[in-house]
C-alpha cells in the first residue's frame, strides 16, 4: 500500500495528465454529436453576452447590405404568402376566399456568432425558448436553407449549420421532383452534395434544388441551391450532385427559425405507421 502511494506521488504529473486528457475526451465524445446541450447551455451564458456585444458592434458596418436584403425579402414575401399555408377544405371552389390553415410560423433572429470554415460549423442566434425556439427546428435565410436548432436556452439558441458533418435533409430537383439527401463534405463552404439520387433524368448545370415536404425541418420549396455538376461512380446506381448553396454562409445576418406547427402530429403518424407495419 505504501509503495502504491509512493508510486502515485512520484508520478503524479503523468497521472494528472492522463486524468485531464480523459476528461477532455469525455467532453469531446459526449458533446460532439447532436447532444451538445449541457456544454452549450453553460457556454451560452458565458459567451452569449460577449458575442452579442461584438455582433452589435459589427452590425453598423453591414447596415446597407442588410437593408438591401431585407427589402428584397419583403418583396419576395409579398408574392409568396401562400406557400406556408395549406387549404383544408375539400371543396375547390371555396379556395378563392379561404385563408387556409397556418402550417408554419417564422421567428426572426439575428446571428450573433457564426462559423463556416471549421470542420463542424455552428450558428448562435439571439433568440431562445422565450421567443418560442425549440430543439430540432429548421433555420432558413431569405435566400435559402441554413441549419437546424440543436439547443436553446432562454435567450439564445445554437443551430447546427448546413456546413456540419451531421447535418442531413431531404431535397428534390425542382424540375423533375427526383429526391435525394443533402450532406456537406468538409472543405468548400459554398458547396453541398446531394447523394442517393437515382435516375435524375436530363440535368443541366443551374437546375434548382429545393426542400421537400417530408422534411420536418423546412417547408416545401425552400431553395437549397443550384446544380453545378453531377456524376455517378463506377458500378453505383446512384448519382451524386454537387450543388452550389444559395445561402452565403460568410454573410449570414438575419435568419428565420421555422416552427412547423404539425410536426408532432406528422412525426407520431409516421411512427405509428412504422409500428403498425411491423405487426
Amino acid at each position: 500500500m505504501r509503495s502504491f502511494f509512493l508510486f502515485i506521488i512520484r508520478n503524479y504529473a503523468i497521472i494528472l495528465f492522463l486524468i485531464l486528457e480523459l476528461l477532455s475526451f469525455w467532453l469531446i465524445f459526449n458533446n460532439n454529436a447532436y447532444h451538445k446541450t449541457f456544454f452549450l447551455n453553460s457556454a451560452n451564458y458565458l459567451t452569449g453576452n460577449v458575442n452579442e456585444k461584438y455582433s452589435s458592434l459589427t452590425d453598423y458596418l453591414n447596415l446597407g447590405e442588410i437593408n438591401d436584403s431585407l427589402l428584397a425579402e419583403n418583396a419576395g414575401l409579398r408574392s409568396q404568402i401562400h406557400q406556408s399555408r395549406q387549404f383544408d377544405t375539400v371543396n375547390v371552389y371555396q379556395m378563392q376566399d379561404s385563408t387556409g390553415t397556418v402550417l408554419y410560423t417564422y421567428i426572426p433572429a439575428e446571428v450573433i456568432s457564426n462559423s463556416f470554415t471549421e470542420v463542424n460549423n455552428y450558428i448562435t442566434l439571439n433568440r431562445g425558448t422565450k421567443h418560442g425556439i425549440k430543439k430540432d427546428m429548421g433555420v432558413i435565410t431569405s435566400s435559402g436553407i441554413c441549419g437546424k436548432i440543436i439547443t436553446a436556452t432562454e435567450n439564445y439558441s445554437v443551430a447546427m449549420s448546413v456546413l456540419h458533418g451531421n447535418f442531413f435533409t431531404r431535397a428534390a430537383i425542382k424540375k423533375t421532383n427526383v429526391q435525394g439527401n443533402i450532406r456537406w463534405e468538409i472543405g468548400d463552404p459554398t458547396i453541398v452534395t446531394m447523394v442517393d439520387v437515382s435516375e435524375p433524368g436530363e440535368l443541366q448545370p443551374g437546375d434548382t434544388i429545393i426542400t421537400t415536404a417530408n422534411s420536418l425541418l423546412f417547408p416545401r420549396g425552400i431553395l437549397i441551391g443550384t446544380l453545378q455538376e453531377y456524376g455517378r461512380e463506377e458500378g453505383s446506381n446512384f448519382y451524386t450532385l454537387k450543388i452550389k448553396l444559395a445561402t452565403q454562409f460568410s454573410r449570414l445576418h438575419t435568419v428565420y427559425v421555422v416552427n412547423y406547427l404539425r410536426k408532432e402530429e406528422q412525426k407520431s403518424a409516421e411512427e405509428a405507421a412504422i409500428n403498425n407495419a411491423g405487426n
Binding site: 477532455s24 469531446i28 458533446n31 460532439n32 457556454a43 462559423s115
Partner: peptide, 11 residues
C-alpha cells in the same frame, strides 16, 4: 466555449 468545440482545445 467560444468555439463550440467542447474538450478539443482543452486536450
Amino acid at each position: 466555449m467560444f468555439n463550440m468545440t467542447p474538450g478539443m482545445h482543452a486536450s
